[in-house]
Design a binder for these strands. Structure first.
Lengths: 208, 208
DNA sequence: TCTTGGTTTGTACTGTGAGTACAACATACG
DNA sequence: CGTATGTTGTACTCACAGTACAAACCAAGA
Protein backbone atom coordinates (compact mmCIF):
# COMPACT_ATOMS: atom_id res chain seq x y z
CA UNK A 1 0.00 0.00 0.00
CA UNK A 2 2.97 2.31 0.25
CA UNK A 3 3.98 2.58 -3.37
CA UNK A 4 1.04 3.98 -5.27
CA UNK A 5 1.93 4.24 -8.99
CA UNK A 6 3.26 7.63 -10.03
CA UNK A 7 0.42 8.32 -12.42
CA UNK A 8 -2.23 7.85 -9.79
CA UNK A 9 -0.24 9.88 -7.32
CA UNK A 10 -0.16 12.84 -9.63
CA UNK A 11 -3.86 12.49 -10.38
CA UNK A 12 -4.62 12.45 -6.68
CA UNK A 13 -3.39 16.02 -6.35
CA UNK A 14 -6.50 16.99 -8.18
CA UNK A 15 -8.32 16.30 -4.95
CA UNK A 16 -6.26 18.69 -2.85
CA UNK A 17 -8.19 21.79 -3.79
CA UNK A 18 -11.46 20.02 -3.14
CA UNK A 19 -10.45 18.80 0.29
CA UNK A 20 -8.99 22.18 1.15
CA UNK A 21 -12.25 23.84 0.26
CA UNK A 22 -14.76 21.57 1.92
CA UNK A 23 -12.75 19.56 4.41
CA UNK A 24 -12.41 15.83 4.21
CA UNK A 25 -15.84 15.31 5.72
CA UNK A 26 -17.51 17.52 3.24
CA UNK A 27 -15.88 15.61 0.42
CA UNK A 28 -17.40 12.38 -0.79
CA UNK A 29 -15.21 9.64 -2.14
CA UNK A 30 -17.29 9.93 -5.27
CA UNK A 31 -16.29 13.59 -5.52
CA UNK A 32 -12.66 12.67 -5.22
CA UNK A 33 -13.13 10.03 -7.86
CA UNK A 34 -14.70 12.54 -10.19
CA UNK A 35 -12.17 15.30 -9.53
CA UNK A 36 -9.16 13.06 -10.00
CA UNK A 37 -10.55 10.85 -12.73
CA UNK A 38 -9.69 7.79 -10.68
CA UNK A 39 -12.74 5.59 -10.22
CA UNK A 40 -13.81 4.83 -6.71
CA UNK A 41 -13.03 1.13 -7.00
CA UNK A 42 -9.48 1.94 -8.02
CA UNK A 43 -9.01 4.32 -5.15
CA UNK A 44 -10.05 1.60 -2.76
CA UNK A 45 -7.80 -0.88 -4.49
CA UNK A 46 -4.74 1.19 -3.59
CA UNK A 47 -5.73 3.17 -0.58
CA UNK A 48 -7.41 2.29 2.70
CA UNK A 49 -10.13 4.89 2.41
CA UNK A 50 -10.53 8.61 2.74
CA UNK A 51 -8.04 9.10 5.50
CA UNK A 52 -5.38 7.48 3.39
CA UNK A 53 -5.98 10.05 0.67
CA UNK A 54 -5.37 12.84 3.14
CA UNK A 55 -2.44 10.99 4.59
CA UNK A 56 -0.88 10.67 1.18
CA UNK A 57 -1.30 14.32 0.26
CA UNK A 58 -0.15 15.73 3.57
CA UNK A 59 2.66 13.25 3.87
CA UNK A 60 4.01 14.63 0.66
CA UNK A 61 3.74 18.23 1.82
CA UNK A 62 5.48 17.39 5.04
CA UNK A 63 8.26 15.61 3.21
CA UNK A 64 8.81 18.63 1.01
CA UNK A 65 9.00 20.91 4.01
CA UNK A 66 11.28 18.60 5.92
CA UNK A 67 13.49 18.36 2.86
CA UNK A 68 13.75 22.07 2.18
CA UNK A 69 14.31 22.90 5.81
CA UNK A 70 16.86 20.13 6.04
CA UNK A 71 18.89 21.70 3.26
CA UNK A 72 18.65 25.15 4.80
CA UNK A 73 19.80 23.86 8.13
CA UNK A 74 22.74 21.92 6.75
CA UNK A 75 24.89 24.87 5.68
CA UNK A 76 28.14 26.02 7.27
CA UNK A 77 26.76 29.28 8.62
CA UNK A 78 26.07 29.94 12.27
CA UNK A 79 22.78 28.83 13.75
CA UNK A 80 21.24 32.25 13.65
CA UNK A 81 21.75 32.58 9.92
CA UNK A 82 20.56 29.05 9.37
CA UNK A 83 17.46 29.83 11.37
CA UNK A 84 16.64 32.63 8.98
CA UNK A 85 17.24 30.29 6.07
CA UNK A 86 15.02 27.63 7.62
CA UNK A 87 12.20 30.11 8.11
CA UNK A 88 12.44 31.16 4.51
CA UNK A 89 12.55 27.56 3.32
CA UNK A 90 9.53 26.52 5.32
CA UNK A 91 7.45 29.47 4.25
CA UNK A 92 8.60 29.00 0.70
CA UNK A 93 7.30 25.48 0.47
CA UNK A 94 4.09 26.35 2.28
CA UNK A 95 3.25 29.22 -0.01
CA UNK A 96 4.06 27.09 -3.00
CA UNK A 97 1.37 24.64 -1.97
CA UNK A 98 -1.44 26.66 -0.52
CA UNK A 99 -4.16 24.11 -0.99
CA UNK A 100 -2.22 21.42 0.78
CA UNK A 101 -1.70 23.85 3.64
CA UNK A 102 -5.36 24.65 3.72
CA UNK A 103 -6.15 20.97 3.82
CA UNK A 104 -3.71 20.62 6.66
CA UNK A 105 -5.36 23.35 8.70
CA UNK A 106 -8.78 22.07 7.89
CA UNK A 107 -8.08 18.55 8.94
CA UNK A 108 -5.43 19.16 11.51
CA UNK A 109 -7.31 17.06 14.01
CA UNK A 110 -7.42 14.07 11.78
CA UNK A 111 -3.80 14.64 10.83
CA UNK A 112 -2.65 14.60 14.42
CA UNK A 113 -4.67 11.45 14.99
CA UNK A 114 -2.95 9.61 12.14
CA UNK A 115 0.24 8.40 13.83
CA UNK A 116 2.49 8.58 10.79
CA UNK A 117 1.37 12.07 9.97
CA UNK A 118 1.74 13.26 13.52
CA UNK A 119 5.33 12.09 13.49
CA UNK A 120 5.97 13.67 10.09
CA UNK A 121 4.49 16.91 11.36
CA UNK A 122 6.91 16.96 14.24
CA UNK A 123 9.86 16.17 12.02
CA UNK A 124 8.99 18.68 9.37
CA UNK A 125 8.02 21.59 11.56
CA UNK A 126 9.19 21.37 15.09
CA UNK A 127 12.38 19.41 15.39
CA UNK A 128 14.58 21.47 13.09
CA UNK A 129 13.74 24.58 15.09
CA UNK A 130 14.39 22.97 18.41
CA UNK A 131 17.72 21.71 17.14
CA UNK A 132 18.72 25.07 15.74
CA UNK A 133 17.99 26.92 18.94
CA UNK A 134 20.18 24.55 20.85
CA UNK A 135 22.99 24.91 18.34
CA UNK A 136 22.68 28.67 18.45
CA UNK A 137 23.39 28.65 22.13
CA UNK A 138 26.45 26.48 21.58
CA UNK A 139 27.91 28.54 18.80
CA UNK A 140 27.02 31.81 20.48
CA UNK A 141 24.84 33.12 17.69
CA UNK A 142 21.62 32.85 19.68
CA UNK A 143 20.76 33.80 23.19
CA UNK A 144 20.30 31.34 26.02
CA UNK A 145 16.71 31.38 27.26
CA UNK A 146 15.18 30.21 30.48
CA UNK A 147 12.82 27.64 28.99
CA UNK A 148 14.15 26.41 25.65
CA UNK A 149 11.34 23.91 25.07
CA UNK A 150 8.62 26.48 25.46
CA UNK A 151 10.49 29.02 23.37
CA UNK A 152 11.07 26.52 20.58
CA UNK A 153 7.37 25.82 20.58
CA UNK A 154 6.59 29.50 20.27
CA UNK A 155 9.03 30.01 17.46
CA UNK A 156 7.51 27.04 15.71
CA UNK A 157 4.08 28.60 16.22
CA UNK A 158 5.21 31.98 14.94
CA UNK A 159 6.54 30.52 11.71
CA UNK A 160 3.82 28.01 11.09
CA UNK A 161 0.85 30.19 11.81
CA UNK A 162 2.26 32.88 9.59
CA UNK A 163 2.64 30.36 6.79
CA UNK A 164 -0.74 28.78 7.24
CA UNK A 165 -2.52 32.09 7.36
CA UNK A 166 -0.78 33.24 4.26
CA UNK A 167 -1.77 30.03 2.52
CA UNK A 168 -5.36 30.33 3.65
CA UNK A 169 -5.62 33.86 2.27
CA UNK A 170 -5.91 32.30 -1.12
CA UNK A 171 -3.00 31.74 -3.49
CA UNK A 172 -0.89 34.73 -4.34
CA UNK A 173 0.48 35.84 -7.67
CA UNK A 174 4.05 35.51 -6.51
CA UNK A 175 4.50 32.92 -3.77
CA UNK A 176 8.21 33.35 -3.45
CA UNK A 177 7.95 37.11 -2.98
CA UNK A 178 5.35 36.52 -0.28
CA UNK A 179 7.59 33.96 1.32
CA UNK A 180 10.44 36.49 1.55
CA UNK A 181 8.16 39.13 2.93
CA UNK A 182 6.71 36.88 5.60
CA UNK A 183 10.00 35.31 6.44
CA UNK A 184 11.54 38.73 6.93
CA UNK A 185 8.76 39.64 9.33
CA UNK A 186 9.03 36.40 11.25
CA UNK A 187 12.80 36.56 11.50
CA UNK A 188 12.64 40.15 12.63
CA UNK A 189 10.28 39.16 15.40
CA UNK A 190 12.02 36.01 16.45
CA UNK A 191 15.51 37.44 16.43
CA UNK A 192 15.03 40.98 17.59
CA UNK A 193 11.76 40.98 19.48
CA UNK A 194 9.41 43.87 19.81
CA UNK A 195 10.78 45.73 22.78
CA UNK A 196 12.15 49.20 22.14
CA UNK A 197 15.89 49.64 22.69
CA UNK A 198 15.19 51.67 25.82
CA UNK A 199 13.11 49.04 27.54
CA UNK A 200 15.49 46.36 26.32
CA UNK A 201 18.45 47.90 28.09
CA UNK A 202 16.52 48.03 31.30
CA UNK A 203 15.47 44.44 30.80
CA UNK A 204 18.87 43.17 29.95
CA UNK A 205 20.00 44.65 33.20
CA UNK A 206 17.43 42.53 35.01
CA UNK A 207 18.24 39.35 33.22
CA UNK A 208 22.02 39.28 33.45
CA UNK B 1 -31.75 28.31 19.59
CA UNK B 2 -29.40 30.75 21.26
CA UNK B 3 -30.49 30.43 24.87
CA UNK B 4 -29.99 26.82 25.88
CA UNK B 5 -31.09 26.37 29.53
CA UNK B 6 -28.26 26.62 32.03
CA UNK B 7 -28.67 23.11 33.28
CA UNK B 8 -28.28 21.59 29.86
CA UNK B 9 -25.38 23.87 29.10
CA UNK B 10 -23.49 22.62 32.11
CA UNK B 11 -24.27 19.02 31.26
CA UNK B 12 -22.98 19.54 27.76
CA UNK B 13 -19.50 20.11 29.09
CA UNK B 14 -19.44 16.44 29.85
CA UNK B 15 -18.98 15.95 26.13
CA UNK B 16 -15.86 18.09 25.87
CA UNK B 17 -13.46 15.42 26.97
CA UNK B 18 -15.03 12.94 24.60
CA UNK B 19 -14.82 15.24 21.61
CA UNK B 20 -11.29 16.24 22.51
CA UNK B 21 -10.27 12.61 22.61
CA UNK B 22 -11.88 11.28 19.48
CA UNK B 23 -12.70 14.30 17.40
CA UNK B 24 -16.23 15.27 16.52
CA UNK B 25 -16.35 12.69 13.75
CA UNK B 26 -15.29 9.91 15.99
CA UNK B 27 -18.01 10.86 18.43
CA UNK B 28 -21.55 9.67 17.85
CA UNK B 29 -24.47 11.76 18.96
CA UNK B 30 -25.48 8.74 20.99
CA UNK B 31 -22.13 8.89 22.77
CA UNK B 32 -22.67 12.53 23.55
CA UNK B 33 -26.13 11.71 24.83
CA UNK B 34 -24.76 9.05 27.09
CA UNK B 35 -21.82 11.07 28.34
CA UNK B 36 -23.89 14.13 29.14
CA UNK B 37 -27.03 12.37 30.30
CA UNK B 38 -29.06 14.42 27.83
CA UNK B 39 -31.11 12.16 25.58
CA UNK B 40 -30.55 12.44 21.89
CA UNK B 41 -34.05 13.76 21.22
CA UNK B 42 -33.48 16.58 23.69
CA UNK B 43 -30.17 17.50 22.15
CA UNK B 44 -31.87 17.82 18.80
CA UNK B 45 -34.68 19.81 20.31
CA UNK B 46 -32.25 22.54 21.35
CA UNK B 47 -29.39 22.25 18.96
CA UNK B 48 -29.06 21.91 15.22
CA UNK B 49 -26.91 18.81 15.33
CA UNK B 50 -23.36 17.87 16.13
CA UNK B 51 -21.75 20.98 14.81
CA UNK B 52 -23.88 23.05 17.10
CA UNK B 53 -22.57 21.13 20.07
CA UNK B 54 -19.03 21.99 19.09
CA UNK B 55 -20.04 25.51 18.31
CA UNK B 56 -21.52 25.90 21.74
CA UNK B 57 -18.50 24.53 23.57
CA UNK B 58 -15.90 26.42 21.59
CA UNK B 59 -17.94 29.58 21.57
CA UNK B 60 -17.80 29.50 25.32
CA UNK B 61 -14.06 28.97 25.39
CA UNK B 62 -13.54 31.80 22.98
CA UNK B 63 -15.73 34.09 25.02
CA UNK B 64 -13.73 33.32 28.11
CA UNK B 65 -10.49 34.06 26.34
CA UNK B 66 -11.79 37.22 24.78
CA UNK B 67 -13.05 38.31 28.18
CA UNK B 68 -9.85 37.64 30.09
CA UNK B 69 -7.70 39.19 27.42
CA UNK B 70 -10.05 42.15 27.25
CA UNK B 71 -9.54 42.82 30.95
CA UNK B 72 -5.77 42.47 30.64
CA UNK B 73 -5.68 44.87 27.77
CA UNK B 74 -7.82 47.49 29.43
CA UNK B 75 -5.38 48.59 32.12
CA UNK B 76 -3.57 51.92 32.31
CA UNK B 77 -0.12 50.48 31.69
CA UNK B 78 1.82 50.92 28.51
CA UNK B 79 1.19 48.56 25.62
CA UNK B 80 4.23 46.48 26.25
CA UNK B 81 3.18 45.67 29.80
CA UNK B 82 -0.37 45.03 28.67
CA UNK B 83 0.94 42.67 26.04
CA UNK B 84 2.60 40.61 28.71
CA UNK B 85 -0.61 40.64 30.70
CA UNK B 86 -2.61 39.58 27.67
CA UNK B 87 -0.29 36.68 26.99
CA UNK B 88 -0.64 35.52 30.56
CA UNK B 89 -4.40 35.90 30.46
CA UNK B 90 -4.79 33.95 27.25
CA UNK B 91 -2.55 31.13 28.36
CA UNK B 92 -4.24 31.12 31.74
CA UNK B 93 -7.67 30.48 30.27
CA UNK B 94 -6.36 27.95 27.80
CA UNK B 95 -4.58 25.88 30.39
CA UNK B 96 -7.62 26.04 32.60
CA UNK B 97 -9.66 24.33 29.91
CA UNK B 98 -7.38 21.85 28.26
CA UNK B 99 -10.05 19.64 26.81
CA UNK B 100 -11.79 22.53 25.11
CA UNK B 101 -8.46 23.50 23.64
CA UNK B 102 -7.87 19.99 22.44
CA UNK B 103 -11.28 19.96 20.87
CA UNK B 104 -10.42 23.24 19.20
CA UNK B 105 -7.21 21.88 17.71
CA UNK B 106 -8.86 18.67 16.70
CA UNK B 107 -11.72 20.32 14.91
CA UNK B 108 -10.05 23.51 13.86
CA UNK B 109 -11.14 22.97 10.32
CA UNK B 110 -14.75 22.68 11.22
CA UNK B 111 -14.40 25.62 13.57
CA UNK B 112 -13.06 27.88 10.88
CA UNK B 113 -15.84 26.76 8.60
CA UNK B 114 -18.53 27.76 11.12
CA UNK B 115 -18.84 31.48 10.43
CA UNK B 116 -19.71 32.53 13.98
CA UNK B 117 -16.83 30.59 15.41
CA UNK B 118 -14.39 31.87 12.85
CA UNK B 119 -15.29 35.40 13.85
CA UNK B 120 -15.08 34.59 17.54
CA UNK B 121 -11.68 33.05 16.97
CA UNK B 122 -10.44 36.21 15.39
CA UNK B 123 -11.84 38.36 18.15
CA UNK B 124 -10.55 36.20 20.94
CA UNK B 125 -7.09 35.50 19.65
CA UNK B 126 -5.91 37.78 16.96
CA UNK B 127 -7.46 41.20 17.22
CA UNK B 128 -6.28 42.10 20.73
CA UNK B 129 -2.71 41.40 19.69
CA UNK B 130 -2.93 43.39 16.54
CA UNK B 131 -4.41 46.28 18.46
CA UNK B 132 -1.77 46.14 21.15
CA UNK B 133 1.11 46.17 18.71
CA UNK B 134 -0.26 49.27 17.10
CA UNK B 135 -0.72 50.98 20.44
CA UNK B 136 2.79 50.04 21.47
CA UNK B 137 4.18 51.89 18.53
CA UNK B 138 2.12 54.96 19.43
CA UNK B 139 3.08 55.03 23.09
CA UNK B 140 6.69 54.15 22.34
CA UNK B 141 6.73 50.96 24.39
CA UNK B 142 7.06 48.69 21.36
CA UNK B 143 9.21 48.89 18.31
CA UNK B 144 7.97 49.83 14.88
CA UNK B 145 8.26 46.91 12.49
CA UNK B 146 8.30 46.75 8.73
CA UNK B 147 5.26 44.56 8.29
CA UNK B 148 2.94 44.93 11.29
CA UNK B 149 0.28 42.59 9.93
CA UNK B 150 2.65 39.71 9.41
CA UNK B 151 4.32 40.31 12.76
CA UNK B 152 0.99 40.39 14.58
CA UNK B 153 0.13 37.08 12.96
CA UNK B 154 3.39 35.58 14.14
CA UNK B 155 2.94 36.83 17.67
CA UNK B 156 -0.53 35.40 17.64
CA UNK B 157 0.93 32.10 16.45
CA UNK B 158 3.63 32.09 19.07
CA UNK B 159 1.15 32.53 21.89
CA UNK B 160 -1.56 30.28 20.60
CA UNK B 161 0.58 27.36 19.57
CA UNK B 162 2.33 27.44 22.92
CA UNK B 163 -1.04 27.33 24.65
CA UNK B 164 -2.51 24.65 22.48
CA UNK B 165 0.52 22.42 22.79
CA UNK B 166 0.53 22.81 26.51
CA UNK B 167 -3.14 21.91 26.59
CA UNK B 168 -2.64 18.90 24.39
CA UNK B 169 0.12 17.57 26.65
CA UNK B 170 -2.60 16.44 28.97
CA UNK B 171 -3.86 18.47 31.91
CA UNK B 172 -1.31 19.61 34.42
CA UNK B 173 -1.47 19.57 38.18
CA UNK B 174 -1.15 23.33 38.43
CA UNK B 175 -2.51 25.12 35.36
CA UNK B 176 -1.79 28.58 36.62
CA UNK B 177 1.85 27.79 37.34
CA UNK B 178 2.18 26.40 33.85
CA UNK B 179 0.53 29.48 32.46
CA UNK B 180 3.10 31.70 34.14
CA UNK B 181 5.93 29.58 32.94
CA UNK B 182 4.76 29.52 29.36
CA UNK B 183 3.81 33.13 29.33
CA UNK B 184 7.24 34.09 30.60
CA UNK B 185 8.83 32.13 27.79
CA UNK B 186 6.54 33.61 25.15
CA UNK B 187 7.00 37.15 26.40
CA UNK B 188 10.74 36.72 26.54
CA UNK B 189 10.74 35.62 22.92
CA UNK B 190 8.28 38.17 21.63
CA UNK B 191 9.76 41.12 23.42
CA UNK B 192 13.47 40.41 23.40
CA UNK B 193 14.00 38.00 20.56
CA UNK B 194 16.69 35.40 20.34
CA UNK B 195 19.59 37.32 18.87
CA UNK B 196 22.62 37.73 21.09
CA UNK B 197 23.40 41.29 22.21
CA UNK B 198 26.42 41.33 19.92
CA UNK B 199 24.53 40.50 16.75
CA UNK B 200 21.71 42.77 17.85
CA UNK B 201 23.92 45.83 17.98
CA UNK B 202 25.13 45.11 14.49
CA UNK B 203 21.56 44.66 13.35
CA UNK B 204 20.24 47.73 15.01
CA UNK B 205 22.87 49.62 13.11
CA UNK B 206 21.42 48.30 9.89
CA UNK B 207 17.85 49.07 10.79
CA UNK B 208 18.11 52.61 12.05
C1' DT C 1 -0.37 -17.78 -29.17
C1' DC C 2 -1.72 -18.90 -24.65
C1' DT C 3 -1.27 -18.42 -19.76
C1' DT C 4 -0.78 -16.21 -15.66
C1' DG C 5 -0.91 -12.59 -12.39
C1' DG C 6 -1.46 -8.18 -11.33
C1' DT C 7 -4.38 -4.11 -12.06
C1' DT C 8 -8.65 -1.61 -13.42
C1' DT C 9 -13.33 -0.74 -13.21
C1' DG C 10 -18.58 -1.16 -13.00
C1' DT C 11 -22.29 -2.61 -10.19
C1' DA C 12 -24.55 -4.06 -6.52
C1' DC C 13 -24.58 -4.62 -1.81
C1' DT C 14 -24.12 -3.86 3.60
C1' DG C 15 -23.74 -1.25 7.66
C1' DT C 16 -23.51 2.77 10.34
C1' DG C 17 -24.91 6.78 12.10
C1' DA C 18 -27.00 11.59 11.41
C1' DG C 19 -30.98 13.68 11.44
C1' DT C 20 -36.35 13.60 11.47
C1' DA C 21 -41.17 12.51 12.74
C1' DC C 22 -44.15 11.96 16.03
C1' DA C 23 -46.67 10.66 19.87
C1' DA C 24 -46.82 10.39 24.80
C1' DC C 25 -45.78 12.63 28.77
C1' DA C 26 -44.37 16.37 32.11
C1' DT C 27 -44.56 20.96 33.83
C1' DA C 28 -45.88 25.64 34.31
C1' DC C 29 -48.67 29.37 34.24
C1' DG C 30 -52.77 32.11 33.03
C1' DC D 1 -58.61 23.26 34.03
C1' DG D 2 -56.15 24.02 29.19
C1' DT D 3 -52.78 25.84 26.48
C1' DA D 4 -47.99 26.45 25.72
C1' DT D 5 -43.52 24.91 26.17
C1' DG D 6 -40.20 21.54 27.10
C1' DT D 7 -38.77 16.36 27.49
C1' DT D 8 -38.13 11.85 25.94
C1' DG D 9 -38.65 7.13 23.64
C1' DT D 10 -39.23 4.84 19.38
C1' DA D 11 -39.25 4.18 14.98
C1' DC D 12 -38.27 5.72 10.87
C1' DT D 13 -35.33 7.75 6.39
C1' DC D 14 -31.37 8.61 3.89
C1' DA D 15 -26.67 9.50 2.62
C1' DC D 16 -22.41 7.73 2.24
C1' DA D 17 -18.19 4.84 3.48
C1' DG D 18 -16.57 0.81 2.67
C1' DT D 19 -16.92 -4.14 0.66
C1' DA D 20 -17.71 -7.97 -2.64
C1' DC D 21 -17.14 -9.61 -6.79
C1' DA D 22 -16.97 -10.55 -11.46
C1' DA D 23 -15.69 -9.00 -15.84
C1' DA D 24 -12.34 -6.87 -18.49
C1' DC D 25 -7.69 -5.37 -19.36
C1' DC D 26 -2.80 -5.55 -19.91
C1' DA D 27 1.61 -6.85 -19.45
C1' DA D 28 5.44 -10.39 -19.94
C1' DG D 29 7.11 -14.43 -20.49
C1' DA D 30 6.83 -19.69 -22.30
Amino acid sequence: MRKLPAKLASQLYGAAELIAERGLDGTKIEDIAEATGIPKATIYYHLDGKNAVLEFLLGDLLDMIAGAVGVAVASEENARTRLEAAVLAQLGVMLEHPSLCRALVGDLGRATRLPELAAALRTAFYEPIEQLLAEGVSDGSLRQVADPGAVALSVFGAITVAGLSAAVEGPSADPSADASRFSAAVSELVLDGLATPASRVQRRGEAL
